[in-house]
Simulated assay, not measured.
Amino acid sequence: MSILLTGGAGFIGSHTCLELLQEGYDIVVADNLSNSKPEALKRVQELSGKSLRFYQADLLDREAMDRIFTAHKIEAVIHFAGLKSVEQSVKHPLEYYRTNITGTLILCELMQKHNVKNMVFSSSATIYGNAKRVPIRENEPLQATNPYGRTKLIVEEILRDLSAADPEWSISLLRYFNPTGAHPSGRIGEDPTGLRTNIMPYLTQVAAGHIDILNVFGDDYPTADGTGVRDYIHVVDLARGHVKALQKVIRTTGADAYNLGTGRGYSVLELIDTFERMSGRSVPYQVVNRRPGDVAVSYADPQKASAELDWRAEKTLEDMCADAWRWQSGNPQGYSD
Rank of each mutant, 00 (worst) to 15 (best):
H183L: 04
T193M: 12
T227I: 12
G241I: 02
N259Y: 10
S185Q: 05
D237I: 01
L260H: 11
G226I: 06
T197A: 12
R196G: 01
L269N: 02
G261P: 02
G261C: 10
D237H: 02
T227N: 08
P201Y: 06
A245G: 08
T204F: 05
A245R: 09
V236W: 00
T223Y: 02
E270C: 00
G218V: 02
T227W: 13
V249H: 04
G265C: 08
V206Y: 00
K244G: 04
A207V: 08
G189R: 01
H242G: 14
V249A: 09
T197Q: 13
T262C: 09
D225C: 14
D225G: 14
G241T: 08
P201Q: 09
G263M: 04
N259P: 03
N198E: 14
I213E: 15
P201K: 03
I211C: 05
L214S: 05
I250P: 08
D219R: 11
P192W: 15
D231M: 15
D237K: 01
D231S: 07
D191M: 06
V249R: 03
D191P: 01
G261V: 08
T197N: 13
D212M: 12
T227M: 10
Y221F: 15
G241N: 07
T262R: 15
T262Y: 10
R196F: 00
D219L: 06
Q205V: 00
L214Q: 10
T262G: 11
T197K: 13
H242D: 09
D220K: 08
G241K: 00
K248Y: 04
G254M: 13
G254P: 08
N198D: 11
D225E: 14
Q205C: 09
L203F: 14
E190P: 02
I188Y: 02
L203I: 05
K248P: 00
T252M: 07
I233S: 11
R240I: 00
N198Q: 15
D191L: 11
N259W: 03
L203E: 12
Q205Y: 01
H234I: 04
Y221S: 01
L269H: 05
D219C: 05
R251G: 01
V235C: 06
Y258D: 11
L214Y: 03
P184W: 04
G228Q: 15
D220N: 14
G189H: 01
H183I: 01
P201R: 06
G241F: 00
T193W: 08
Y232S: 00
A207F: 06
G265I: 03
A257G: 09
T262V: 14
T253L: 12
G265V: 09
G265P: 00
I211L: 15
L269E: 06
Y266G: 05
P201C: 05
T180H: 04
A257D: 08
P201N: 07
A245Y: 07
D231Y: 09
I233E: 02
T252Q: 11
R230I: 09
R251N: 15
R230H: 09
H234E: 06
G254D: 10
E190T: 07
Q247L: 06
D225S: 08
Y266N: 09
R251K: 14
I199T: 03
L246Q: 00
Q247I: 09
T193C: 07
L203V: 11
G186S: 13
L203N: 10
S185N: 05
Y258K: 08
D225W: 10
A255G: 02
R240Q: 15
T204L: 09
H234K: 07
R264L: 11
D212H: 13
H210N: 11
V249N: 06
Y266S: 10
